[in-house]
Amino acid sequence: MAADQRLLLVPIGLLLVSNLLPASSVEYARNAIASGQWWRLWTGQFCHWSALHLIGNLAAVAGLVLVAGKPIRRWLVLLPVAAPLLSLFLMATTPELEHYRGLSGLVAMLVVGAAIEGGTVGRILAIAWIGKLGFDIFSGTPSPLLPEGIVTSWQAHLGGLLAGLITAAGLRLHDSRYRCCS
């Protein structure tokens, strides 16, 4: 098994653990994180409000993997690194957000991955995604995949896009150094 394949077990394990443990103890909960339950920085991005919510996000990940192909693997490997950064981004920018669950912030990061690794289709998808994000910010359209009373956090999507851009810059730097040295 290649190294990147082995590393893929980390986000898969995190996804399993976050969705099998009681959600109240793994969700992103602002006060709980502030009082020292730091694991929620990771698990909050992987746990979900309902099975439908989980299925929706997994379908999005599967679609992006198909669009971007094998090169998206290293993006998937970096999800556990991006998850706490995204949670910290939400803590800093969205003080009114008390509880959060969902993978879509990280899906937004993978959309950037698809734009870079997925050719023309990936780039068109990313542009359409950014348009959708703008629409969400101004309209606040509720998602039918979420239970009643839970609204979509466009801030998480914005944070995910930013995490994606940072990841892209990091990977580009890494690749250029690798090429230069080899």
Partner: peptide, 19 residues
């Protein structure tokens, strides 16, 4: 909203599905 979900929404899923 005190409670939010990270969800791509039907529009997001539709876009990804199309791609």
């Amino acid at each position: 909203s005190g409670h939010s979900g990270g969800d791509s929404g039907l529009a997001g899923l539709g876009l990804i599905g199309l791609a």
